[in-house]
Every structure is written in C-alpha cells, then in structure tokens.
Amino acid sequence: MATFALTRRALIAGAALVIAIPRLRAPRAAPAATPAAATPAPSLISLQINGHERRLAVEPRTTLLDALREQLDLTGTKKGCDRGACGACTVHVDGRRVNACLTLAMRVQGRAITTIEGLAQGDDLHPVQAAFIRHDAFQCGYCTPGQIMSAAAFLAEGHDADPATIREWMSGNICRCGAYPHIVDAVRDVAISRAANGAG
C-alpha cells in the first residue's frame, strides 16, 4: 500500500536537495599545529543497537552520535552542542546514560546501545514517553529525546523522587525553551507511580 504521509525527516532531506542551506557558522581554521595523520581507511564494525546488530564502516574519529544519525538513519538522537554540555545526544550503553557525542563508535562494539527509537515496546510507549505527553513536557522538542533517555536512566538508578533531586540528576540535559517545570512533573509522576506499584 502506497503511503503519502511524508515523515518530517524525509521532508527535510528532500528540501535540502533544492535549497542551498547556508552554513550558519564558518568552520574555524585549524591551528597550524601537528599535521593531520593520513585518514585511516574506514573499518567495518558491528554495533548492538536496540537489540539489533547493525554493521557499518566508520573511521576512528566517528562518534556514536554521528554513526547513529548519519549512517544508521537513527535521527531521534539529537546533536546539540556536540561537546557533552547539553545532553541532547543522551543514549544508554549497557543500561547507563552517556553522551553519544563524546563516545567513539569503535569503542562501543559489543556493548548494548539503546536509543530513543528503542525505548518503546512496539506501540507501547515507555512510561516516561507517555508522561512527557501527558504533562506537555516540551516545547520545540529538540532536547526531548535526550531528556527522556536521561529520565529513563534516572528512574532505573533509583533516586528519590523529590523535585530538587530530579532537577539535580537531570542537570545534564539542557532545555532552551525552559520546559523544566513540566519535565520535572513528568519524571516525578512516573517515579511516584512506580514506587506505588512496588517497582522501585
């Protein structure tokens, strides 16, 4: 059955073909320091992502973030600062939240990687995803995948559910819209219902 429902991603990708998008920031000239090593040939690696084995060719300098977005079409993980300061790229590696922008893809072979695309069970949203919708915990939505991945890890880590503790342990995720009050409400909602259900 043909579908005419374009995804937002496909639309943006299509638009890029006809519209020359100007660079927002000129690349900064590299200092005349050590000459760059000859670019090593990409190596074929295998990554375990959302329960599936994915094979791809990467250079040593390819970050997990770029591998996900540029090579595996998993664009739910966002690139914000690309310096570990904003949390938009938060994913789980062996169940622990990390910044994909500061992770080299070659160094996470054999580890279990979970991205926002792997959080729901089929059509059943993860409780944090459902709570973000219920509490309207976003505005533009760019930081949301990272916020949700961080919140899911926060719950698994087993912290107290008071607002101050949530704010402290969610501080690695920046929201420039300032949706923080609703984000805290959403996380607190899930934490309290989990505690009530004895799920810790």
């Binding site: 590299a30 050590t34 090593a37 300098r61």
Partner: peptide, 20 residues
C-alpha cells in the same frame, strides 16, 4: 575521553593516534 574529545573537536589537541 570526555575532556580529550572536546579538546580534539576544538583542534586544541590534534593527536595522530589515540591509545585506548
């Protein structure tokens, strides 16, 4: 790698090889 990769992205560190 949390600091080293930041420095490399800014071209403050430009190593020819990383020893993992």
């Amino acid at each position: 790698g949390t600091d080293l990769l930041q420095l490399m992205k800014e071209n403050i560190e430009t190593p020819s090889a990383l020893i993992d």
